[in-house]
Design a protein around this nucleic acid. Structure first.
Lengths: 145, 145
DNA sequence: ATGGTTGCAAAAGATTTGCACCGGA
DNA sequence: TCCGGTGCAAATCTTTTGCAACCAT
């Protein structure tokens, strides 16, 4: 965690941005909830526990800033709000395959990268430079089906 | 096209809904733009060319109605608005794999279903009932890279 | 006349922006 | 002092909803 913060600080400094208290608080919340997929408002509420007078706009601006530096990634599960998760060295570059239960809304993950063949085909046949991908699988989880 | 309209009419009638002029106009626009991925507002503007006094709310309500009956499918490319495409017998049940150029916004399609193995694994290992999936591949197209 | 359908306007909800103020180098 | 960072409120943008009018059966 401490090293991670240092890394983020360095990354931001390269772009002439600072890791302020507010931003550090946002980062801390994301770090503590790496396994979740927090919405901006959820991040906001958690940050407010430590910094009661933070503004929602700051959270949005911070998330956008972090996004631009690849510190967090944002994802969309189709429920009308974005979700955010921080990226550390362990999951960097990994694509998440989200498995979404349509009944209870639970989200499972399959982090393995099984789409290499498909990506290779797209590259080759369409001469398309693949940068990223997202896979979502919808259905009913073991408890709901 | 005529047969298609009849089919849709029948489908709706089963649910005690009518295929009104307005709804037929929406369907016509979607049919004429099967290859595109129109947003609600784009559909609205196209419908207005034929039916100038249609309301945007009607377009939304129609798209939602059609969605519920599997007449259209909606998709989200992460640009803050939904896209709609009608489903006919030719592409019914097929999952679209969208390949999105991050520079020019062009959207290519790969309709083949290459994720069966992956779905089977999800089913087996997580005992998850797979109903649908979405795959999006981001990158740069042949013209932009 | 009955009940689904519609247009309009207002509401809702997530996110962004304008702006004045603040606070650390 | 200076300039990025911040909170607040207002604006934005897509989508939804309330409601009275409408239209076909």
């Amino acid at each position: 965690m401490q090293n991670y913060i240092k890394d983020v600080e360095k990354t931001l400094k390269n772009g002439d941005f600072k890791l302020t208290h507010r931003r550090k608080a946002v980062l801390g919340v994301l770090w503590d909830n790496k396994d979740k997929h927090l919405s901006a408002e959820e991040v906001y509420n958690l940050v407010k526990e430590k910094e009661p007078d933070v503004g929602l706009a700051t959270v949005y601006r911070t998330l956008e800033l972090f996004s631009g530096f690849g510190i967090v990634c944002s994802m969309d599960f189709g429920d009308g709000r974005m979700r955010y998760e921080c990226i550390d060295s362990k999951n960097e570059g990994h694509h998440h395959h989200h498995i979404i239960c349509l009944k209870c809304g639970k989200i499972l993950e399959m982090a393995e990268d099984l789409l290499d063949d498909l990506e290779a085909r797209v590259s080759r046949e369409l001469s398309f430079k693949v940068l990223d991908h997202q896979l979502k699988i919808f259905g009913h989880c073991s408890e709901c089906k």
